[in-house]
Design a protein around this nucleic acid. Structure first.
Length: 241
DNA sequence: AAGCACGCCAACCGCTTGAGT
DNA sequence: TACTCAAGCGGTTGGCGTGCT
C-alpha cells in the first residue's frame, strides 16, 4: 500500500510491492534463504533495497503468517505483555505465533491502545506508555508456552529466543548461520556445508518434512533470466562452473 | 451520488545493536 | 579501541477502504 510507487535516486523501487515482486522474493527466499539481505535483491532480480525485501518477507510473505482478526486471547496477551515489556513489539509478537511485530504494533496503535486507555481511565490508573517506563525490560527473558514460529536460530542447536542473535540464512524455522558461511573459504565451501549442515543441500529450509524440494520447485518454477545463485557468480566462477 | 473524515496497515526511515576486522 | 557493516527494531507516514453526512 502506501508510499508512492516510485524509484529513488539509485533506481531502486519503493512503495507497494507488486505480485511479481512478491513472487520473486518468495521463490528466492524459499529456495535459498536470506543469506544476506543486502545482496539478496540483486540475485533475486529485484530492484529493491535489502531492507525493503527483509521487511516484506518478515511481515507479509513469510510462511505461517497469521492474518486477519485477533482473538480475545491474543489481544489480552498483547495488553498484558505491553504492560510488562512496554513497546518491545518484537518481544510481544514472539509470544503470538504467526503475528509480526509490525502487525502487533499496528493493532496496538489502532485498536488496543484506545481500549486500554479507556479501561485505565475507568480504573483511575494512568496509562503506561511504552519503552520509557520499561527500558529495563530489554533484559527480560521470556519463557513462553508458545515459542515463536520464526526463530532465527540454528536449526540444529537451540539458541536464545532473540531475533537478533545472529545474521543468518533463514527460511521459516530452519536457518544456517552466516557466521558459519563467513568462516568457510571458497575452496571448501560446499564440502563444509555438506559436512557441517548435514541436510542443508537436501532439505534445507523445510520445517515441515512433508514439504519437499520437488513440491517447492513445482510451486516456484524458475523464471526466464532469473538469477538464483545464492553465492553469486564469483563463487561459481571460482569453481570453474 | 459525491464529498469528507477517519481508521487501518504496508512500508519507509532512522537509530541501535552486535559481529567482524 | 575504533571503525565498518549488516541486521533488527520501533516510530512514523500516507494511500486505500469504508462509513457517515
Amino acid at each position: 500500500m502506501v508510499r508512492t510507487p516510485c524509484c529513488d535516486k539509485t533506481g531502486l523501487r519503493k512503495g507497494t510491492w507488486t505480485p511479481e515482486e512478491d513472487r520473486k522474493l518468495t521463490a528466492y527466499v524459499t529456495r535459498y534463504g536470506c543469506w544476506n539481505w543486502r545482496q539478496l535483491p540483486k540475485f533475486a532480480g529485484l530492484a529493491r533495497c535489502g531492507k525493503s525485501c527483509r521487511l516484506r518477507w518478515l511481515n507479509y510473505l513469510r510462511p505461517n503468517i497469521k492474518r486477519g482478526n485477533y482473538s480475545k486471547e491474543e489481544e489480552e496477551t498483547i495488553i498484558r505483555l505491553h504492560e510488562s515489556l512496554g513497546n518491545r513489539w518484537s518481544a510481544i509478537a514472539a509470544e503470538l505465533p504467526g503475528r509480526t511485530d509490525n502487525e502487533v504494533k499496528n493493532h496496538w496503535h489502532t485498536t488496543l491502545k484506545k481500549r486500554f486507555k479507556q479501561k485505565s481511565d475507568k480504573n483511575g490508573a494512568p496509562e503506561k506508555e511504552g519503552t520509557k517506563l520499561n527500558n529495563n525490560a530489554n533484559r527480560l527473558v521470556i519463557s513462553s508456552p508458545n515459542p515463536p514460529l520464526i526463530l532465527e536460530s540454528s536449526m540444529s542447536s537451540p539458541q536464545p529466543a532473540s531475533s537478533d542473535q545472529n545474521s543468518s540464512i533463514t527460511a521459516d524455522n530452519n536457518t544456517v548461520e552466516s557466521s558459519r558461511l563467513d568462516s568457510v573459504s571458497d575452496d571448501n565451501l560446499f564440502e563444509a556445508y555438506e559436512a557441517d549442515s548435514g541436510s542443508f543441500w537436501t532439505e534445507p529450509f523445510f520445517s515441515d518434512s512433508s514439504y519437499t524440494w520437488s513440491d517447492m520447485w513445482a510451486e516456484f518454477p524458475l523464471l526466464d533470466g532469473e538469477i538464483l545463485y545464492p553465492f553469486g557468480f564469483n563463487y561459481l566462477e571460482g569453481f570453474n562452473l
